[in-house]
C-alpha cells in the first residue's frame, strides 16, 4: 500500500507545471524515504531529478517500493481538477496498475477522487556523481526567468560566464547582442533577493535557451534558484521545494558554438 497526503496540494500542481513541458511521461519511484523521479527529455539533452521526502508529507506510507509510470499529460489534466487550497493524496495498492488522486477541500465539504491508469515505462536511470562545482550562483528565481526570457529573443543560446566579479548572461543573433551582468549583492533586506556567487575558478558555458526557459516553469516553487557550473559538464539548475525536497534540472552544454 502506498499513500502520500500533501496538505499543500498546490505544491504538487506546481511540480507538474515544472516538468510537463519537458517530459511526456515519467516514473515516480516511491520508497520508504519518499518519492523520486528521474527522467530525460525526449532529445536526451536534459535530465530532471525530483525529490520529495516523506517528512514533507502530512501522511506518508509506503509498504513496498513501487514504480509508478505516469503519462504526465494525463496527470496534469487530473491535477488541474484540484483547487490550489485542496489537500492532495496519491494512493496505490501494491502491484496495482492504477493510481488514485484524492482532492479534499480545506473544510472537507468536497472530496473528489480520480483514478489514472499507470503505464509501464522502460526508462534508463543515470548515475549522477556527487560533484564539487567550480561556480555556484544563487539568484532570485524570477530574475533568472526574466533573463532567460529576454535573452531568448536574440538567439538560440545563452552564454553564462561566472567570474569573481559576478555572473554575465549573453546572447547574440541576427538582431544584435545582449549582455546582462549581475553583481553579487552586498546587503539585502530579504535573503531571497540576494545574488550570491561562490567561485573556485571562472567558468563560461553555452546552453540552449529552449531548455533554460522550460526549467523556469519551476519558478513558482521557490523564490531562489541555484545554478552550479564546472567546465565541460552539465549545468545544474536547482529549485528547492519548501521543506519537502527539490527539483534539479541538468542541462548538457552546447559545444563548438
Amino acid at each position: 500500500m502506498f499513500e502520500a497526503r500533501l496538505v499543500q496540494g498546490a505544491l504538487l500542481k506546481k511540480v507538474m507545471e515544472a516538468i510537463k513541458e519537458l517530459l511526456n511521461e515519467a516514473s515516480f519511484d516511491c520508497a520508504h524515504s519518499g518519492i523520486l523521479l528521474q527522467a530525460m527529455d525526449n532529445s536526451h539533452v536534459s535530465l530532471v531529478s525530483l525529490n520529495l521526502r516523506r517528512e514533507g508529507f502530512d501522511k506518508y506510507r509506503c509498504d513496498r517500493n513501487l514504480v509508478m509510470g505516469m503519462n504526465l499529460s494525463s496527470m496534469s489534466k487530473i491535477l488541474k481538477c484540484a483547487s490550489n487550497d485542496d489537500i492532495i493524496t496519491m494512493k496505490a495498492q501494491d502491484n496495482a496498475d492504477t493510481v488514485t488522486f484524492v482532492f479534499e477541500s480545506p473544510k472537507q465539504e468536497k472530496i473528489s477522487d480520480y483514478e489514472m491508469k499507470l503505464t509501464n515505462l522502460d526508462q534508463d536511470h543515470l548515475g549522477i556523481p556527487e560533484t564539487e562545482y567550480s561556480c555556484v550562483i544563487k539568484l532570485p528565481s524570477a530574475e533568472f526567468a526574466r533573463i532567460c526570457r529576454d535573452l531568448s529573443q536574440f538567439g538560440e543560446s545563452i552564454v553564462i560566464s561566472c567570474t569573481k566579479e559576478g555572473v554575465k548572461f549573453s546572447a547574440a543573433g541576427d538582431i544584435g547582442t545582449a549582455n546582462i551582468k549581475l553583481a553579487q549583492t552586498a546587503t539585502v533586506d530579504k535573503e531571497e533577493d540576494a545574488v550570491m556567487v561562490d567561485m573556485q575558478e571562472p567558468v563560461t558555458l553555452t546552453f540552449a535557451c529552449k531548455y533554460l526557459n522550460m526549467f523556469t516553469k519551476a519558478t513558482p516553487l521557490s523564490p531562489q534558484v541555484c545554478l552550479s557550473m564546472s567546465p565541460d559538464v552539465p549545468l545544474v539548475v536547482e529549485y528547492k521545494i519548501e521543506d519537502i525536497g527539490h527539483i534539479r534540472y541538468y542541462l548538457a552544454p552546447r559545444i563548438g558554438d
Binding site: 530525460m40 532529445s43 536526451h44 539533452v45 536534459s46 535530465l47 534508463d124 536511470h125 543515470l126 548515475g127 549522477i128 556523481p129 538560440e156 540552449a208 559538464v233 552539465p234 541538468y250 542541462l251 548538457a252 552544454p253 552546447r254 559545444i255 563548438g256 558554438d257
Partner: peptide
C-alpha cells in the same frame, strides 16, 4: 541543434 551535447554522454547508466 548543432553543437548540442547529450546529457547521457556525461552520466553513466545505472
Amino acid at each position: 541543434m548543432a553543437g548540442q551535447s547529450k546529457i547521457s554522454s556525461f552520466f553513466s547508466s545505472k
